[in-house]
Amino acid sequence: MNNLTIRILSAIVMVGVALAATWQGGMLFAVFVAAVATAVYWEWWRMVRGWNGLWKVGGFFYALIPAVALLYVREQVPDGFDLVIWVYLVTWGTDIGGYASGKMIGGPKLAPALSPNKTWAGLIGAMAMAGFFGALWADLNDLSAHLFWLGALFALGAQIGDLFESGLKRKAGIKDSSNLIPGHGGVFDRVDGLLIVATLTALLVMWNWV
C-alpha cells in the first residue's frame, strides 16, 4: 500500500476508536484518554531526553491537564458527549482547513522558524473550517450560543499547540514525535491541537459559558 492509503486507513481507525470510546463514556473513555495521554508523555520524554529536568516535569502536566479536561467535559450532563464531539470537530476542522488552504493557496509563511510548511492562508482556512464545523454541530445539537463562534478562535489555539510541538521537534532534531501511527507519525503529532482545544473547552464549562 502507498503512504496515502496507509494514512487514510489509519485515520479511519483512529476516528472510529475515538468516537466509540467517547460514545461509551465512563471507564472505557477514561482508559482511552489515559492511553493517549500516556503516549503523548512517552513521546515528549523521548524528545526532551538530555534536556533540563523541568522539561520532563512540564511535559507531564502538558499531557495530564488536557486529559483531565476531556474527562471533565465528557461527564457533563446532558451535553457531555456533544461537547467532546465539538472539541473533535474543531480540532479536525483546524487540521483539514489548514492543510487544504495551505496547499491550494500557499503564500507567506506563518512561522518558518518553527514549521516551514505552515502559511497564513492555512491559518485562515483552519479558522474558517473549525468555525464552520463547530457552529454546525452546536446548531444541530442545540448547544450554547458561545460555541457558534468560538470554534474559529479555538482553532487559533490549536495552531499554537501545533507550532509548539513543531518547535520541540525542531529543537530535538526529529521529524515525528514517534512512529506509533502508520503514516501519521506519533500520537502527539495527531493531538497537539486537541490538547489546547480540550483544555479551553473545559475552562468554558467551569465558567458556565456552555
Score class of each variant (00 low, 15 high):
Pro112Glu: 12
Ser177Asn: 08
Leu4Tyr: 14
Ala158Cys: 12
Ser101Ala: 15
Ile181Val: 07
Val36Asp: 03
Phe60His: 07
Met27His: 08
Thr199Tyr: 06
Leu9Glu: 10
Gly102Asp: 08
Met47Phe: 01
Leu204Gly: 09
Gly26Gln: 14
Gly151Glu: 05
Gln24Val: 15
Ile6Gln: 14
Ser177His: 09
Met27Glu: 13
Val90Gly: 05
Asp162Leu: 12
Gly185Cys: 08
Leu200Lys: 11
Asp142Cys: 05
Arg74Phe: 13
Ala30Pro: 01
Gly107Ile: 12
Val77Ile: 15
Trp44Ile: 05
Pro108Asp: 10
Pro182Ile: 07
Gly93Phe: 03
Val33Asp: 07
Leu54Arg: 12
Thr91Ala: 09
Leu9Met: 14
Val48Pro: 06
Ala126Tyr: 08
Trp149Leu: 10
Val84Glu: 06
Arg170His: 04
Trp92Cys: 00
Leu110Asp: 00
Ala198Gln: 12
Ile8Asn: 10
Val68Thr: 06
Gly102Val: 06
Gly98Asn: 10
Leu168Phe: 06
Gly59Phe: 05
Ala130Phe: 07
Leu204Thr: 11
Asn117Lys: 12
Ile8Asp: 04
Gly53Asn: 15
Tyr62Trp: 14
Asp189Val: 02
Asn179His: 15
Gly183Gln: 04
Leu194His: 07
Gln76Asn: 13
Ala152Ser: 09
Tyr88Lys: 02
Val36Pro: 00
Val48Gly: 05
Met206Asp: 09
His184Met: 02
Lys169Met: 03
Gly80Glu: 05
Phe133Glu: 01
Phe164Asp: 02
